[in-house]
Write a protein that binds this DNA or RNA. Structure first.
Length: 453
RNA sequence: GGCGACGUGGCCAAGUGGUUUAAGGCGGAGGUCUGCAAAACCUCUAUUCGGCGGUUCGAAUCCGCCCGUCGCCUCCA
């Protein structure tokens, strides 16, 4: 039984999808800049959820949108003096490059707001018909007072909320009403609608795309903790008002946000935040391990040192799996570790505990292999479990300009000769040279093996 | 003002009433192996969970107060 924490009820609940196929919607990014490690965190968390559900035998349909019309995009286009479509194309491409680099599986569908305009307009019409929305000067607003349980997701109360907001000049019926459709402003991208030219408000696209690609009721809705209010709150309201079906989403899952340590970190934020540059320095596995060693609802600490630590930890797993197999009658039964893993993951994706099971298994493998046991089925299990968490067990990127294989081979031979003649000083000098080039060597009996670090 | 999160070893981080005198990772110390290393393995590295009270046979885990850190309420994964 899989239990997941539901932000709506603030409790762990048994996961029960409505149908055969799990319908999961994850809020995507607004494409106006490169992805940073905060996006990576969210991508990885929902990638793990997707993969784990599949590991547990579910079929998953995952939808993740691109918000490709928005103030920030328009501003960026103006700043760069290019058409806004050029901005969105560029950063959608960048997003995929980052996610692919992070070994995040693509969603089943990646819809774009601008491509589902008819559905967005139709949904707004339904809301007007249901008297949950009203037109005003070419814009359309959602009437928050029309839904008695408005605020249930974020625990906000409309009246208390209004006190905290600044009182902007507006003719809206209620200050808390939010825009479903924004009337066109000069020089802005716009689409025709029954209320005149304009563009969709931020929240409506997600409801429209969820309805279109998954249906009016979905199993899982995910996103960052920072989206609970107003975005997800408004999404629930408009979706349930339009469909008259409750709940819109069976479980709301929110990942924690990245945390940084004071002033020291902020200096290097620029680079540390960019996923593509982080991937030049660290393996995708290290980035993923750094994130999954914390629970997804906590706020992981962003610190390059920790990602470096994770890189070393990954090497332990890789080495255990890749070690030369022993052929033997005796073998290690890894089942208890699999049970531990499943039990941990079933409990609201407790990845730190799941990883502890994997690390323990790796140690057990090394120990029992040394005692002459066949650990190949254990190695297969480690591959299976790490893969369910999205690790690819690939080596980290090369840090320095490295030697090619034949150059390494020549140096290894040179050292071998030196060792045979017990010229230890010469042998160690070659080893230092290789080490500086990112090659580590190990002597096992007469053989010398080398690997790129 | 409103909603909410957090404070566990040198660092990161699970655990949320007894099987935990607290998992796992990184780092550190010693050892085995090795020409020396690397890797691996073994041992050690919090009698203690921000502080003070309380509930209980029993608390890191529940309650109260205090101290500290942080997020959201405006764009944000």
């Amino acid at each position: 039984m899989i239990q997941l924490y539901n932000s709506l009820t603030r409790k762990k609940e048994e996961f029960k999808p409505l149908g055969e196929e799990v319908k999961m919607y994850v809020c995507g990014v607004t494409v106006y800049d490169d992805s940073h490690l905060g996006h990576a965190l969210s991508s990885i968390v929902f990638d793990v959820l997707d993969r784990y559900l599949e590991f547990r035998g579910y079929k998953v349909k995952k939808v993740q949108n691109f918000t490709d019309v928005d103030d920030k995009i328009i501003n960026r286009a103006n700043a760069d003096k290019v058409p806004w479509q050029e901005i969105t194309e560029k950063y959608i491409e960048s997003f995929f490059k980052s996610s692919d680099g992070l070994n995040v599986r693509r969603a089943t569908v990646h819809p774009r707001a601008t491509e589902d305009m008819p559905e967005i307009i139709e949904l707004i019409n339904r809301l007007i018909d249901a008297e949950a929305a009203y037109e005003l000067g070419g814009s359309v607003y959602y009437r928050v007072r029309s839904k008695s349980d408005y605020g249930k997701l974020s625990g906000q109360n409309i009246d208390e909320m209004i006190e905290g907001t600044r009182n902007e000049e507006s003719r809206k019926e209620d200050p808390a009403d939010f825009a479903l459709w924004k009337a066109v402003k000069p020089e802005e991208p716009n689409w025709d609608s029954p209320w005149g030219p304009g563009r969709p408000g931020w929240h409506i696209e997600c409801s429209a795309m969820a309805f279109k690609h998954l249906g009016e009721q979905i199993d899982i809705h995910g996103g960052g903790l920072d989206l609970i209010f107003p975005h997800h709150e408004n999404e629930v309201a408009q979706s349930e008002s339009a469909s008259s079906k409750t709940p819109f989403a069976g479980v709301w899952i929110h990942n924690g946000l990245l945390r940084t340590t004071g002033a020291t970190m902020s200096k290097s934020l620029g680079n540390a935040f960019n996923v593509n540059s982080a991937l030049e320095e660290f393996s995708s596995d290290a980035i993923r391990l750094w994130i999954l060693q914390s629970h997804y609802r906590t706020n992981p600490l962003l610190d390059k040192k920790l990602i470096g630590d994770a890189e070393r930890s990954m090497r332990r797993i890789r080495q255990a799996v890749e070690a030369v197999p022993v052929v033997s009658e005796k073998s290690l039964d890894p089942e208890p570790f699999k049970r531990r893993f499943v039990e941990a993951m079933d409990d609201d994706l407790n990845t730190p505990q799941a990883l502890a099971a994997i690390f323990d298994l790796c140690r057990k493998m090394n120990r029992t292999r040394a005692d002459g046991n066949d650990v190949s089925s254990a190695a297969d299990l480690v591959r299976e479990l790490t893969s369910a968490l999205g690790f690819n067990l690939a080596a980290p990127p090369k840090k320095v300009e490295s030697l090619n294989d034949s150059e390494v081979g020549a140096l290894v031979q040179k050292r071998k000769d030196a060792r045979a003649e017990k010229r230890w000083g010469d042998a160690d000098a070659v080893r230092d040279q290789l080490d500086a080039a990112g090659i580590s060597i190990s002597d096992t009996g007469d053989e010398t093996e080398w690997t790129r670090k």
